[in-house]
Design a protein around this nucleic acid. Structure first.
Lengths: 240, 240
DNA sequence: AAGTGGTCTAGACCACGTG
DNA sequence: ACGTGGTCTAGACCACTTT
């Protein structure tokens, strides 16, 4: 059984990988331009882009819309089952978090939300859309849908901090159980634009649907992460 | 703020999407050849491939090495925290599972495994490598590392069924807690070849590290899934 | 044997980000 | 204003799958 021949773009991938290692390029550092790379490695831009895309898929480098290629930082560890705010677990890992609220509004429950939350269509609902950074790289955008019946006046508060912390401290709300969904998807439309990535860039979707002790809908969280930004780590079955 | 102009390949994506809908192409059905599509939509193969790749990233279609483009089946729902075998939850969802053992061997604990399991380097360990199908599409490959101290003779058993079921029924072994890791990655090398996808195809990695009541290492499970094949769904915090 | 997808070339134009 | 990445053309050859 003979091996298929090893295509040029994969050879380039290997050489780029080695080159990045020997140059000791560090997190968020920029690579030379594609034209410069294609000259240096004696190939065309199309082929060097294929090699770069390969390394992008592997998570070694990433691109920021029309600005160039950069070294990907280490993945953030994330446990969606814990009740710890973004700012806290980012800080715990030695990085610098930042949150930007892109919009917040009082709106009405649409049919799809009614279906999973049990709220009636048309019921008032808070909707917050935020972007989260780690070390000034935008890693995810997040839609929060919160039941105003449980926390009137929430939108007047600053939403740049942890919503969970606020719910716990100001309104004494805690989730009793959660339904979590996770799957890979392509970042599109608003999410892709907000994260400065191409339409169709690989991402990870995380949804958390939280209910209180009485089984009432508390909050829905829909997160769109860059594919290379996180590593989910959960411990299951341990009773503390 | 004027919109950036909408590139041809995204227009093609939309037209392909519509075309697939109106043709009512069903799961696993093959699309026309790239040359035929590029004629039909009056463009070049490079551009039609960009549009196809977009739909691939979105999970609507997939490719099987050099054979063509096909309609992606519905995602399989999967709860890695439950103790239910692959065959069972696939069947529960109305699909047909199949498992193929690609190899199984008795080997020695390598350093990386020692680090996470607590076993000493060089200790005997079972290693099973399997491929799992749903409706005859290979969705994942899986490495199992099992502590033979707890289940001598396991390799003589058929490994085409649920290993967990076997551990429970034949050896009365149950995990007390588990460390689960999940993140997107690129499928490469052995994993890509075994799943008949390109080097660098998008995938999802799921690792489960299981310990028994005494805190002893039981089993390590490393799964490499196609990115479009599954939706993880977990309920947390509910006490039955 | 024919046709397919995978790879690759050598150009080109454009919109956008950065100086 | 310049250079960048993003897009696109019109070809070509090859390895592999299917007929």
């Amino acid at each position: 059984m003979s091996r298929t021949d090893y295509p040029v773009y994969l050879q380039l991938r290997d050489r780029l990988w080695d080159w990045i290692e020997t140059e000791e390029l560090s997190s968020q550092q920029r690579l030379p331009s594609e034209r410069e790379l294609s000259e240096r490695f004696h190939t065309t831009r199309v082929t060097i882009r294929q090699a770069l895309s390969q390394l992008e898929a592997e998570g070694l480098i990433f691109r920021s819309n029309r600005r160039g290629w950069y070294i990907t930082p280490e993945r953030l560890r994330y446990d969606p089952s814990r009740d710890v705010g973004f700012n806290r677990y980012v800080t715990e890992q030695g990085f610098h978090p930042r949150t930007e609220t892109l919009f917040k509004q009082l709106t009405e429950v649409p049919p799809w939300l009614s279906e999973i939350s049990g709220l009636e269509v048309g019921t008032p609902i808070y909707h917050v859309f935020r972007r989260r950074y780690v070390d000034e790289r935008g890693l995810l955008v997040e839609h929060n849908y919160i039941n105003p019946a449980h926390c009137p006046g929430l939108l007047s508060e600053s939403t740049d901090m942890s919503i969970w912390q606020m719910l716990r401290e100001k309104y004494d709300l805690r989730p009793e159980h959660r339904d979590i969904e996770i799957y890979p998807l392509a970042l599109k439309g608003l999410e892709a634009e907000s994260l400065n990535v191409n339409q169709g860039a690989a991402g990870l979707y995380i949804q958390r649907l939280s209910f209180d002790q009485r089984g009432d809908f508390l909050e829905l969280d829909r997160e769109y992460w860059l594919h290379d930004a996180l590593k989910i780590a959960v411990r299951i079955g341990d009773r503390h």
